[in-house]
Design a protein around this nucleic acid. Structure first.
Length: 467
RNA sequence: CGGGAUGUAGCGCAGCUUGGUUAGCGCGCCACGUUCGGGACGUGGAGGCCCCGGGUUCAAAUCCCGGCAUCCCGACCA
């Protein structure tokens, strides 16, 4: 039996995370504190998230655009709560071109302000609404305690910004993104089940009227916010004069939304599925879905033929021809990197007209599969594994979720569902003191609640520790 | 921003207490050979402003002073 390649999860989960990020060659620290270099294997995962989400963003009627990285400081100040919320984590450019700037420039921590400014010019009449934009980019928020993927000073993300004629339209947009874009990608591509709900007042985005969130539960029983969607009310419309003339000739303020998902979800992917052998990637987001390991030189031609046939069948496949490297080393490498299916082809298999197949979602046992059947079987197998990883994650979350009646019952890892009315503001303080927080609020039926209102009495709070 | 620690080869570290040969070890890298079915082994080799600056000394990785950087622990965030 192989010795541990990684620190076991049960021994030290954060250490396991660091180990797997390094050894699976996902990312490393950049030279400046809090920065991250994303390596090809990690970036390929993010690219799958990007392309899946981008497709859904466009399918729901949004257009991509690109806005500036540098924003005049005065823009942020136009929305009081916004600037107050972000000021502690702003990076500000005060000098450029060898001189002190007349007005400092902020490196965007998010783009509500520049985009609001553009919207105010692009929107004139009600026919210009809704205006639904999205941008893929990077933002900077000065972080004191960075962690690769999970919390870095500069991070990659997507931010959507929309403007609507009515409160209702903006609300529908906010919720549509949550379900049709974010949850769809996170559950179907990343195979991570989420709890979708409303943030409490103290967790609300600076400048938003209402903030919604998708929360995943990691293998160590801590929650990770996987994405957010905000109803901004008319807060930014006021600050940036995003107004339109309606059908009656009356001038009205628009209602705006914003929503974002970052490369943090890659961290969520690692911590949702990974085990003591390394990453376990759902096939849909795996940089390689199948690796063909040529055991010895004699079988190289056959291995090339097999990988060629898989590729022709639309499978993302890698061929490992490194016969100069020890067999065990190569196997461990691919397990670390989380490739869903490993096909080992050696003289023994070739003679029998077979290939040894190992699934990364299983116990490491290998099946002998006929060489002429393996390609046909692969799409079905990959789909099955995609579902299996989701089912495992969901079962784990359900086992780690319990209903309790009071704050005093909350102790240990996992989600605690507690009636919101018995927590209250004081209860939330007490929880925060102990490292717990209300991740989100849901209705008694588990649905996403509307904005703050009378029915808050009946909401359920999901409480846990969080990243 | 408060407390603790660390900067020596690509990575991980020893050496420093008590200055003194040519600064070592493991992993990785390169070459050759033997191996190769769950992290192989041998032989040889390459690779160092010992964080930076100053000081003490015949002599500094080692002692002193001053910087800088990073990591860990306590208040925010996708």
């Amino acid at each position: 039996m192989a010795k541990n390649v990684l620190t076991p999860q049960a021994e030290d989960f954060p250490r396991w995370y660091q180990d797997v990020v390094a050894k699976a060659e996902l990312a490393e620290n950049g030279p400046a504190r809090g920065t991250m270099t994303i390596r090809p294997w990690g970036y390929a995962i993010w690219e799958h998230v990007q392309s899946d989400m981008d497709r859904r963003i466009k399918a729901t009627g949004h257009d991509n655009a690109a806005f500036p990285l540098l924003i005049p400081m005065s823009y942020l100040e136009r929305e009081a709560e916004h600037v107050e919320g972000f000021s502690p984590e702003l990076a500000v450019v005060t000098h450029a071109g060898g001189e002190e700037l007349a007005e400092p420039l902020v490196v965007r921590p998010t783009s509500e302000t520049v985009i609001g400014d553009a919207m105010s010019r692009w929107i004139q009449g009600y026919r210009d609404l809704p205006l639904k934009l999205n941008q893929w980019g990077n933002v900077v928020r000065w972080e004191l305690r960075p962690r690769l993927f999970l919390r870095t000073t500069e991070f990659l993300w997507q931010e959507g910004h929309t403007a609507h004629a009515t409160w209702r339209d903006a609300q529908d947009e906010t919720l549509q993104i949550l379900h049709e874009v974010y949850d769809a990608t996170i559950s179907e591509l990343l195979a991570i089940p989420t709890v979708i709900g409303r943030k409490t007042e103290r967790e609300r985005f600076a400048g938003a009227e209402t903030t919604y969130t998708l929360e995943g539960l990691m293998r160590d029983g801590k929650a990770l916010q996987m994405g957010t969607s905000h109803h901004l009310g008319q807060n930014f419309a006021k600050g940036f004069d995003i107004a339109y003339t309606d059908a009656d000739g009356e001038r009205k303020l628009a209602w705006t939304t914003s929503w974002g998902v970052s490369a943090r979800v890659v961290g969520g992917l690692i911590m949702s599925h990974g085990d003591d052998r390394g990453l376990r990637l759902p096939p849909r987001c795996a940089p390689a879905q199948v690796v063909v390991v040529a055991v010895r030189d004699e079988v190289l031609d056959a291995a090339r033929d097999l990988s060629g046939r898989l590729r022709a069948a639309g499978v993302r496949v890698r061929l490992d021809e490194r016969t100069n490297v020890g067999f065990g080393r190569r196997i461990v490498d691919w397990e670390l990197k989380g490739v869903p299916v490993r096909l080992e082809l050696g003289p023994r298999e070739l003679d029998a007209g077979q290939v040894a197949l190992a699934r990364r979602d299983g116990d490491g046992a290998k099946d002998a599969v006929a060489l002429d059947a393996v390609v046909d079987r692969m799409p079905g197998l990959l789909a099955e594994m995609q579902q299996a990883l989701y089912d495992q994650a969901l079962a784990r979350r359900e086992a780690a979720t319990q209903d309790v009646q009071g704050v005093s019952d909350i102790d240990g890892p996992g989600f605690f569902r507690v009636p919101y009315k018995v927590v209250g503001d004081a209860g939330e303080d007490a929880l925060n003191e102990r490292g717990y927080s209300i991740r989100c609020l849901v209705t008694a039926d588990g649905d996403v609640p509307g904005p703050r209102g009378d029915d808050d009495e009946d909401l359920i709070a999901y409480v846990s520790k969080a990243y």
